[in-house]
């Protein structure tokens, strides 16, 4: 690969494309395309979350839709209480609903982090195929719990009638909401980039490559993996919170295993452990869905073919194909 195509420059280019596309669409008066880009951005964020566990830590979680859904429901539930003016609970203290995104995000992140702590603490006692299966099992448990919980819509889901508010923005305008989601994605990517090169990132990558060595050096692989899993769940939960506001609707499908699989597909298409891997993957996914979805309902056939091609011929995904192997100092 030529030297000038460094991953860093490629990432900046990709970030600009993701910003420029919707801006052009906005001025061309195509709000639907702006919303489509918003969907891609939010799904990318969900993938960024999983990439921390799967890419950096080698933790193949097949249950990340659970955190996506938990984040979404946190928003849906609080917003529904805000709409009805009924407090969420009254004793021992009163908790009211809210329509402020900043509060909703914080709650979504905390609740999904807590879910990840519990699920991770139990699942990380296993590894390999067992870990994949147990994370799937936990996600399915939460999925069926949501279906059978009539207070918040059960199988029918829960509507948010007016998109929640963010200071200084009109979130109902597609471009405003896109820019908000885009800013969140970029901030999280910057934080992940810093984290990867800091001590925690080193420990996590070392655990992925040689767990026994890390233990022999006196660091606990379990604690490192659990911390990564919680951070990962929080980021995916935040994506779920944004997704709830995008659709103004949450339902158990947000937690289905299909979605867990799709998030994993983003990462594989874009490049495992690469910073912008899930961003590229999610954009490709949404583009496929949009381009082929209007032609045939079997658009996933083409997605499957693309996935197969990546796995067989381009193991580093899109980023690996363009920017080459991962470099470490």
């Amino acid at each position: 690969m030529p030297e000038f195509v460094t991953e860093h420059r490629l990432n900046i280019l990709l970030a600009l494309i993701l910003l420029g596309g919707p801006l052009v669409a906005h001025f061309a008066d195509e709000p639907f395309l702006v919303t489509l880009a918003t969907r891609a951005t939010i799904l990318a964020l969900a993938g960024v979350g999983l990439n921390i566990a799967l890419g950096l830590g080698g933790l193949v979680s097949f249950g990340h839709a659970a955190f996506f859904g938990v984040g979404g429901y946190a928003v849906g539930i609080l917003a529904s209480h805000h709409q009805t003016y009924e407090p969420l609970m009254t004793s021992p203290f009163v908790i009211n609903g809210t329509n402020q995104m900043l509060v909703l995000w914080l709650v979504a992140v905390l609740v999904s982090g807590l879910a990840a702590l519990v699920i991770g603490a139990l699942s990380l006692r296993t590894s390999g195929v067992y870990f994949i299966m147990i994370t799937l099992a936990f996600a399915q448990m939460i999925y069926y719990f949501a279906i059978s919980w009539p207070a918040y819509g059960g199988e029918d889901g829960l509507s948010i009638y007016v998109r929640n508010a963010f200071p200084g923005l009109n979130t109902l305008r597609p471009l405003d909401f896109f820019l908000l989601c885009y800013a969140v994605l970029i901030v999280v990517l910057l934080a992940q980039w810093k984290m990867t090169g800091a001590r925690f990132g080193m420990a996590l990558q070392a655990v992925r490559q040689n767990e026994g060595r890390v233990a022999a050096l006196g660091l606990s692989p379990y604690r490192i993996k659990l911390a990564a899993f919680v951070i990962s769940g929080m980021v995916t939960g935040l994506a779920g919170a944004l997704y709830a506001d995008l659709n103004r609707f949450v339902s158990p499908t947000m937690m289905s295993w299909h979605l867990s699989g799709e998030i994993m597909v983003f990462i594989i298409l874009g490049g495992v452990a690469r910073l912008f891997g899930p961003v590229v993957g999610a954009c490709l996914f949404v583009l496929f869905e949009h381009a082929f979805g209007s032609v045939t309902e079997h658009w996933q056939f083409f997605l499957g073919a693309a996935l197969l091609a990546v796995v067989l011929f381009a193991r580093g995904g899109f980023i690996g194909l363009v920017a080459g192997r991962v470099r470490h100092d």
Binding site: F200, M202, R223, A227, D329
Partner: peptide, 22 residues
């Protein structure tokens, strides 16, 4: 990087998120 990681392990340091080891 390997030896730096050992030096990090001696400090029992896991939770550094911002300062770059480089």
């Amino acid at each position: 990087g390997n030896v730096m990681f050992a030096a990090q392990a001696r400090r029992k340091s896991i939770f550094g998120f911002f300062r770059q080891v480089s």
